[in-house]
């Protein structure tokens, strides 16, 4: 085939091949989720693996969520106070901190933190299971590896990301309170009172949908990369890096997209 094309057309052919292979791998990526959802809808459901994954993705990320949430809130409290006080509107510190956290920073930062902690570990674990033939062992036992390894992770992501985001938001709001009220002398009533006035259910739902979607995206990318790992330790290392980078980029892209589509 290659030899028959005139020299001038070869770069075009290569471009076409490149585009085809991108479309193909996108298809595989989508097909992977489709298959997993198909299995999700057919019993039996592996409760033990699900609880284990909740622990792995959610519970063990608690400390990092608490830490980053608190400091994000404190930074927001400080910076927004300085900005707002220039317009004489520091009374709105409470809603400003809360809205920034609930609509944007909570879902995004929590998701990025969990990607770094649990997404990478998930890819590495599945990658090692792949290269040591543990996934093949499940397959030849006529047990579907997606049912045991992927579905529980996807559902655990779906459940635990919103919960961790809620925690991140709450801790962040108290971080802002610590700086704004305790340190900079805003009144407690103003901080929380204005928050109640200006934060609506829509904002909270937006944060919820974002985090639920991020939970699926992160575990989807992590399990896909783990399942399709290359050869040896280097393959696992590369898959882990790719998983974190791809998940992080997708989080930010989807964040923008959802921010412009949702109310």
């Amino acid at each position: 085939m290659n030899g028959q094309l005139p020299l001038l057309l070869r770069p075009v052919e290569r471009l076409g091949d490149g585009a085809l292979s991108i479309v193909e791998s996108l298809g595989r990526f989508g097909g992977f989720l489709g298959q997993a959802i198909g299995i999700m809808l057919t019993p039996p459901f592996k409760w033990r693996a699900f609880v284990d994954r909740i622990n792995y993705i959610g519970f063990r990320s608690l400390l990092i969520i608490l830490l980053t949430g608190a400091f994000t809130g404190m930074v927001l409290g400080l910076q927004l106070y300085l900005t707002l006080s220039r317009f004489g509107s520091e009374a709105f510190l409470g809603p400003a901190v809360a809205l920034a956290l609930i609509r944007e920073l909570g879902p995004v930062l929590a998701a990025l933190m969990v990607t770094g902690r649990a997404g990478s570990a998930l890819t590495a674990e599945l990658g090692i299971m792949r290269i040591t033939e543990q996934i093949d062992a499940l397959t030849v036992m006529a047990l579907n590896p997606l049912r045991y390894l992927v579905v529980p992770s996807l559902l655990a992501g779906l459940v635990s990301f919103p919960l961790m985001t809620a925690l991140f938001d709450t801790v962040g709001i108290f971080g802002g309170y610590l700086v704004g009220v305790k340190l900079l002398g805003l009144s407690e009533g103003t901080y929380f009172g204005e928050m109640q006035t200006f934060v609506h259910m829509d904002d909270i739902m937006m944060g919820f949908w974002k985090s639920a979607l991020f939970g699926v995206v992160v575990t989807w990318v992590a399990t896909y990369k783990g399942f399709n790992v290359g050869h040896g330790a280097e393959g696992v290392a590369r898959a882990t890096t790719q998983s974190v980078v791809l998940a992080s980029v997708l989080i930010l892209v989807w964040d923008y997209f959802l921010g412009s589509v949702l109310p």
Binding site: I128, T132, E133, Q134, A137, T139, V140, A142
Partner: peptide, 17 residues
């Protein structure tokens, strides 16, 4: 269905670690 009847030992063991 066919694999239901199989027992396989992989060269590396492939135990669930």
């Amino acid at each position: 269905q066919v694999r239901q009847r199989y027992g396989v030992v992989f060269q590396g063991g492939a135990l669930f670690d």
